[in-house]
Design a protein around this nucleic acid. Structure first.
Lengths: 141, 141
DNA sequence: GTATGGAATTGGAATAATTCTTGATATCGG
DNA sequence: CCGATATCAAGAATTATTCCAATTCCATAC
């Protein structure tokens, strides 16, 4: 008679938007929520192995992909680097600090309108916007 | 006595911004200028082979990289797809037509200011902006 | 002209991130 | 409890790109 292990992440529901949250998916989602530093798949893999030593890279990729497809997290691409993953679902922009390599989320100002910024042709339907900035933060931050 | 072949692209100077424009580099630059449809490296390779049958993929990659590094063309990345290349040096945005897959350049409106759009922290120095839109054009276009 | 040195080109091998495949496991509904 | 379905694991396969070593090209000096 083996008693079940307690769920290590009881704050994460067993299902999100129709996706069954398995042990592995919960762990990976938890990792993204905890640090929010836009890790790559292999960084997620390294962190996940600490709690789930038998997890494989393939599972990490599978889980990340399942979470992205169900719009629980976002995949972030910068240049040709490895994809990074981000649990922030608000519409936002990514700022890459060229000094430290860190990535910061930057929000839009309320009420922004794309066609105030761009010479878009009449009648376009914009389904998705992706904005990435690269630059330096002031010293004091 | 073999007479030299005439330069197939006399409109392209023999040097741009300190980069010696060899036969291969001229051909590749010409391909980008002619169609302006944001081809991938292997699309450029296929087109280049028509005029320079002995050109190699490695050369295409080398030339594209040299042109990018000398800021003669731009490398454009979208999601995790192959890089695409673009001779438009004006600051602009890429619009991916989700119906046809075509990529269109969209200009900024004059006098746009990033911090009208974004809640940027005080004192950031933005060195580079990359904006990509995905969506549909109106039928009639 | 011809020689020379550095840059450019070539073809193939190597790399890295990601996806695919297949079999094993776990979970759900009845 | 049992079969159906979903998920996971491990390694092979794929794809875009880069690296490497050998050759070729080209500008300049002789």
């Amino acid at each position: 008679m083996v008693s079940k292990q307690p769920d290590p992440h009881p704050e994460i529901p067993d299902e999100i938007d129709g996706l069954r949250m398995t042990k592995q998916r919960k762990e990976i989602y938890h990792i993204l929520m905890e640090y929010r530093d836009h890790p790559t798949a292999s960084e997620v893999y390294m962190r996940a192995k600490e709690r789930l030593p038998s997890i494989s890279q393939a599972t990490v990729y599978n889980c990340l992909q399942a979470l992205v497809q169900h719009q629980i997290i976002r995949q972030v691409n910068f240049e040709r680097e490895s994809s990074r993953y981000c649990p922030n679902l608000r519409e936002h922009v990514h700022f890459h600090d060229s000094a430290t390599g860190a990535i910061h989320d930057v929000d839009f100002k309320p009420g922004f309108q794309l066609n105030e910024l761009l010479q878009l042709p009449e009648g376009v339907q914009v389904e998705d916007i992706e904005i990435t900035l690269r630059g330096k933060l002031p010293q004091s931050s």
